[in-house]
């Protein structure tokens, strides 16, 4: 009887802590700095060389997605610039095999959220407000929680018109 009781207690503790662990893992240990197929450095591009964001993420002003640069655009410069570096070789391989680069998405929103980059850019927001100090990052790190509360805190602070209305971001 006693053993059984203990075993049950052990099991209960294990289950509860499992839940806690799972939740904690989800909330605090999510990979905010995933490894990318090519070690692309924003620091070199946006920081040292001062390439404007919109040069590569050209849709941000026009569409709800900012877009990643097409491979042709990368190769356009890199056929001349540092063509022999090992990372550029990777890029070349993709280009020659006619394969797109499978970048890992760092800022990922659920499907039921409507987030237009265009509106935020037009409102005069700096990319860095949400994406952090990109020009000093070698590998991109997610600096914002992307939780609804985070969105709303800014919408409230900036007194966005209908900024707290569900419809503004959902459906």
């Amino acid at each position: 009887m006693d053993t059984i009781k203990k075993l049950v207690l052990c099991a209960v503790i294990a289950v509860v802590t499992f839940g806690i662990g799972y939740k904690v893992s989800d909330a605090y240990f999510g990979n905010r700095t995933p490894a990318q197929p090519i070690e692309f450095s924003h620091k070199i591009h946006a920081g040292d060389n001062q390439i404007p964001c919109m040069y590569c993420h050209s849709y941000a002003e026009r569409s709800r997605v900012s877009g990643v640069p097409n491979v042709k655009r990368c190769i356009g410069c890199h056929s001349v610039i540092k063509p022999d570096s090992p990372e550029i070789q990777k890029l070349k391989n993709y280009w020659e095999n006619k394969e797109p680069i499978p970048w890992v998405k760092v800022y990922n929103l659920p499907d039921h959220v409507y987030f237009p980059h265009k509106r935020h850019i037009k409102a005069g927001l700096e990319c860095q407000m949400c994406h952090g100090d990109v020009q000093s990052m070698d590998r991109i790190t997610r600096v914002s929680s992307l939780k609804m509360g985070w969105c709303l805190s800014c919408h409230t602070r900036k007194k966005v018109k209908n900024g707290r209305d569900c419809w503004t971001c959902h459906i």
């Binding site: 659920p110 039921h112 209908n162 209305d165 569900c166 419809w167 959902h170 459906i171």
Partner: peptide, 18 residues
Amino acid sequence: VYATYHNQDGLNVQVYNR
């Protein structure tokens, strides 16, 4: 839970995720 409410355009809106 206000999953359905009236929005600023006079529409009756259903918020699926709520």
